[in-house]
Amino acid sequence: MDLETARTIVAAARAHGQEAGLKPLTVVVLDPGGHVVAAEREDGASIGRFEIGFGKAYGALALGQGSRATMARAEQQAYFVGAAGAAIGGALVPVPGGVLVQDGDRLVGAVGITGDTSDHDEAAAVAGIEAAGLTARVD
């Protein structure tokens, strides 16, 4: 995940949010190692949103699945998801909005978005990823 690609994802995700009339978003883009490549917090976004967006993206990378799938797993295996969150220092937010980013078969990072409903956050992430010519993995 290079900086220009990450910036494209952020801009397109924010544009999607504005067009859809979403609440102020925070967008966090990570490389496959969990390092922040780009992050933006829109005016009016509440405090703690960076950490929530980071947790959605980082958790997706840590478990190898989108945060929507982690939510479903938490409903079935609450102890596992709780323990996994503790094992990675609490950086796991198991609700939609954390999306893995693929370039063909290669994992290139993850996007975490927060600010509106989790379903809307996820839709903005997918829009940003697809605008960059990459594939979003929510499963």
Rank of each mutant, 00 (worst) to 15 (best):
A110Y: 02
V36K: 02
Q18T: 13
E75L: 15
I47A: 14
A11T: 14
D121W: 00
G115Y: 12
L61P: 06
Y58R: 14
P32F: 14
P96F: 00
A69N: 01
A136K: 09
V126F: 01
A20H: 14
G97L: 04
E130W: 11
I88T: 05
L107W: 01
G128N: 03
V28P: 01
I113E: 14
A125K: 01
A15I: 05
L134A: 04
L134G: 08
I88V: 15
L61C: 05
L25N: 03
T5A: 08
D103N: 15
M1E: 10
G97Y: 02
V28D: 02
G115M: 10
P24E: 08
G98A: 08
Q65A: 15
T117F: 08
T26Q: 00
R73H: 12
A6P: 05
L61W: 10
G104Q: 12
A83L: 13
A87W: 00
D121Y: 00
A136Q: 10
G44R: 10
T8S: 07
S46L: 13
D103Y: 00
A84K: 13
S118H: 14
T117I: 04
V93K: 01
F80R: 09
T5D: 05
R106A: 15
D139L: 02
A132M: 09
L25V: 02
L22Y: 14
G109A: 04
T8W: 02
A15Y: 07
V93C: 09
L63D: 08
V29C: 07
A136S: 10
A20M: 14
A86V: 13
G33D: 14
G17E: 02
P94D: 10
A131F: 08
V95M: 13
G109P: 13
A110H: 07
R7A: 11
A38L: 05
M71E: 12
D121E: 06
V36A: 04
G21I: 11
G97W: 00
I129P: 10
A38P: 02
A131P: 13
A13F: 02
R106P: 01
E75M: 15
G66D: 01
A78G: 09
D31Q: 03
L25I: 05
A60C: 08
R137M: 06
A57M: 09
V108K: 05
V27K: 03
R7F: 06
S46Y: 09
G109D: 10
F50N: 04
A132G: 10
L25P: 01
A125P: 03
T114C: 12
V111C: 11
V37H: 06
V108W: 06
R41A: 13
M71V: 01
